[in-house]
Amino acid sequence: MDVRRLKVNELREELQRRGLDTRGLKAELAERLQAALEAEEP
């Protein structure tokens, strides 16, 4: 998933699904989601 191409509301939805903080600027949201995705990979 390319988090840079997601819209802010899409980033927030993905973060919320993972129980993560949904507050912040788009860059912060993308960074948070990217870190979560990398942590999920085996």
Score class of each variant (00 low, 15 high):
Glu14Gln: 05
Lys26Glu: 15
Ala36Cys: 10
Ala39Asp: 14
Gly24Met: 01
Arg17Gln: 07
Lys7Asp: 12
Val8Leu: 10
Leu6Gln: 04
Ala27Cys: 13
Gln34Val: 09
Ala39Asn: 12
Arg4Val: 09
Ala35Trp: 04
Gln34Trp: 06
Gly19Ser: 08
Val8Arg: 04
Val3Asp: 08
Glu40Val: 09
Leu33Cys: 02
Leu25Ile: 15
Thr22Glu: 12
Met1Trp: 00
Pro42Thr: 15
Glu13Asn: 11
Leu29Gln: 07
Leu33Gly: 03
Ala27Thr: 10
Ala39Val: 08
Arg32Val: 01
Glu31Gly: 12
Leu20Arg: 05
Gln34Asn: 09
Glu14Trp: 05
Glu41Ile: 07
Lys7Ile: 06
Leu25Phe: 04
Ala36Trp: 06
Leu33Thr: 03
Glu38Ser: 10
Leu29Tyr: 01
Asn9Ile: 06
Gly24His: 01
Ala36Met: 04
Lys26Asp: 14
Arg18Cys: 02
Leu33Ala: 02
Gln34Pro: 00
Asp2Ser: 08
Leu15Glu: 02
Thr22Met: 07
Leu20Ile: 03
Glu41Asp: 11
Arg4Asp: 14
Glu28Lys: 04
Glu10Asp: 10
Leu25Ser: 13
Lys26Asn: 09
Val3Leu: 09
Arg23Val: 13
Glu41Gly: 12
Met1His: 00
Val8Cys: 01
Arg5Tyr: 13
Leu15Trp: 00
Ala30Ser: 12
Gln16Gly: 13
Gln16His: 06
Ala27Leu: 09
Lys26Leu: 09
Leu33Ile: 01
Gly19Asn: 15
Glu14Asn: 07
Leu33Phe: 08
Leu6Ile: 05
Asp21Thr: 01
Glu14Val: 02
Glu31Gln: 12
Pro42Gly: 12
Leu15Thr: 00
Glu10Trp: 01
Pro42Leu: 05
Arg4Pro: 13
Glu38Ile: 15
Glu40Trp: 04
Lys26Ala: 12
Thr22Arg: 05
Leu25Thr: 13
Ala27Ser: 14
Arg23Pro: 04
Gly24Ala: 00
Ala30Lys: 11
Glu10Arg: 05
Gly19Pro: 01
Leu25His: 09
Glu14Arg: 02
Arg17Trp: 05
Leu37Tyr: 08
Arg12Tyr: 11
Glu13Phe: 14
Arg4Ile: 10
Glu38Pro: 02
Val3Trp: 08
Lys26Arg: 13
Arg12Gln: 15
Ala36His: 13
Asp21Trp: 01
Gln34Ala: 08
Pro42Ala: 10
Arg32Pro: 02
Ala36Thr: 08
Glu13Met: 13
Glu38Phe: 03
Ala35Asp: 12
Glu40Pro: 14
Ala35Leu: 09
Leu33His: 03
Pro42Asp: 14
Glu31Cys: 13
Val3Phe: 10
Lys7Glu: 13
Leu6Trp: 05
Glu31Met: 15
Asn9Ala: 10
Arg5Ser: 09
Leu11Trp: 00
Leu29Asp: 05
Arg18Lys: 07
Arg18Leu: 08
Gly24Cys: 00
Ala39Leu: 11
Arg18Pro: 01
Ala27Gly: 13
Lys7Thr: 15
Val3Lys: 08
Arg12Pro: 01
Arg17Cys: 10
Arg23Met: 15
Glu40Ile: 08
Arg23Glu: 14
Ala36Gln: 10
Asp2Gln: 11
Ala35Ser: 09
Leu33Asp: 05
Glu31His: 06
Leu15Ser: 03
Glu41Met: 00
Met1Leu: 04
Val8Pro: 12
Leu15Arg: 01
Thr22Tyr: 00
